[in-house]
């Protein structure tokens, strides 16, 4: 657990991956380009002394992951966001079934999300039902801009998509994480469009729509939607590492996001293994708005606001009782393995 000025901050990392980009798993040149592009993101925003070599980056493995998150990275819980990319990777890049290996070993520490693609039709519905049956998933990660055959992606507000969203509502899969932002082949004007979230969020008020990467490079369009819809949230992966190497840009971005989206609708995510929480969590927690920035945006990035962003908001979405979790983590497998139990003891009242 992270401690900030003597106060506990329960960290739920809302965006983590366990991927396999080994050469043996790559079946299309897009797979190699994809991991190389990820690696550019890694080196672009990671302090030099924290950067990984490419071999480690291709497959860091479960053991390293739990160390990086829980032992070294102040993370209390993590939410797996799968990325299938089965056209590029033989066994998939980062599928729910792959993630499940770790999530089932430490179920108290992980939330395991699924995925769907409405172009899969009946088969896709069956897949979603299977994921619910097998893992009791509460959320899905979606890639609307993914190309498949002749299709250049799909829209969340399409008829086919609504069929899947209805299925999610029926199964109690409440959290819809939509990846907007860097796409495979953004040939078309609307490849980054976030407008489809608007109609979907209005039509499904009982579902929560978390726009990952706060819609970059369409943060403005995302903000317009989020300011109107209370069930639209922003995931901070990609924006968060600004805190490390471009702190004023980060402050400016947080000013805008807090103004438009609000402190209750923003979720921290490291995007692990693109970035590591051991340096990212402190960077975000130490971020401050100047007096001038507070006046400009009319918002605060106070410790209370940061606590919401770092964990409390995600806890609300995923029905996580933080106090109950702290009690559980005094003596769970991870705390035993890494001797973390003491950090979950209640501070003794002097």
């Amino acid at each position: 657990m992270y401690t900030h000025n003597g106060e506990d901050v329960f960290v739920i990392d809302g965006h983590i991956h366990l991927w396999d980009a080994t050469e043996e798993n790559i079946v299309h040149e897009g797979g190699e380009q994809f991991i190389q592009c990820f690696y550019d993101y890694h080196t672009a925003f990671t302090p030099e002394e924290e950067q990984w070599d490419m071999d480690t980056y291709r497959q860091y493995g479960a053991e390293r992951m739990i160390q990086d998150l829980f032992r070294d990275g102040y993370v209390d819980m993590g939410i797996f966001q799968p990325t299938y990319l089965t056209d590029f990777y033989d066994e998939g890049f980062n599928t729910t079934d792959q993630n499940a290996e770790l999530a089932e070993e430490y179920p108290e520490r992980f939330v395991l999300n699924g995925s769907f693609d409405p172009r899969d039709g009946d088969e896709g519905i069956a897949h979603l039902e299977r994921l619910k049956d097998d893992y009791d998933i509460q959320g899905v990660k979606l890639y609307t801009a993914e190309w498949r055959g002749d299709s250049k992606g799909w829209r969340l507000d399409s008829e086919e998509s609504f069929r899947f969203l209805e299925k999610c509502a029926e199964l109690g899969i409440e959290n819809i994480h939509a990846h907007k932002g860097p796409t495979i082949r953004p040939l078309n004007r609307d490849a980054f469009d976030v407008g489809d979230v608007d109609d979907a969020a209005t039509s499904f008020p009982d579902l929560n729509f978390i726009v990952e990467h706060v819609g970059f490079p369409r943060v403005d369009d995302f903000c317009h939607i989020a300011t109107q819809e209370t069930n639209v949230y922003g995931g901070l992966a990609v924006a968060a590492p600004f805190a490390q190497n471009r702190p004023r840009k980060f402050a400016e971005m947080m000013g805008e996001l807090l103004f438009w989206v609000g402190e209750d609708n923003l979720l921290f995510g490291s995007d692990y293994g693109i970035w590591e929480p051991d340096w990212l969590v402190p960077a975000v927690m130490n971020a401050e708005l100047t007096q001038e920035e507070r006046a400009e945006y009319g918002v605060e990035l106070s410790p209370d606001v940061k606590r919401k962003i770092m964990g409390e908001n995600a806890a609300q979405l995923y029905n996580i009782d933080i106090e109950e979790k702290k009690e559980q983590f005094r003596d769970d497998a991870i705390s035993q393995e890494f001797e973390l139990g003491d950090s979950y003891e209640e501070a003794s009242a002097d």
């Binding site: 550019d40 993101y41 672009a44 925003f45 970059f216 490079p217 369409r218 943060v219 403005d220 903000c223 990609v238 924006a239 600004f242 190497n245 471009r246 840009k249 400016e252 971005m253 805008e256 438009w260």
Partner: peptide, 16 residues
């Protein structure tokens, strides 16, 4: 906000 979006994306591209 429109300016912040363009500048934010610019910062991502510069870093990459």
């Amino acid at each position: 906000l429109a300016a912040a979006n363009i500048e934010g994306q610019g910062a991502i591209c510069e870093s990459l």
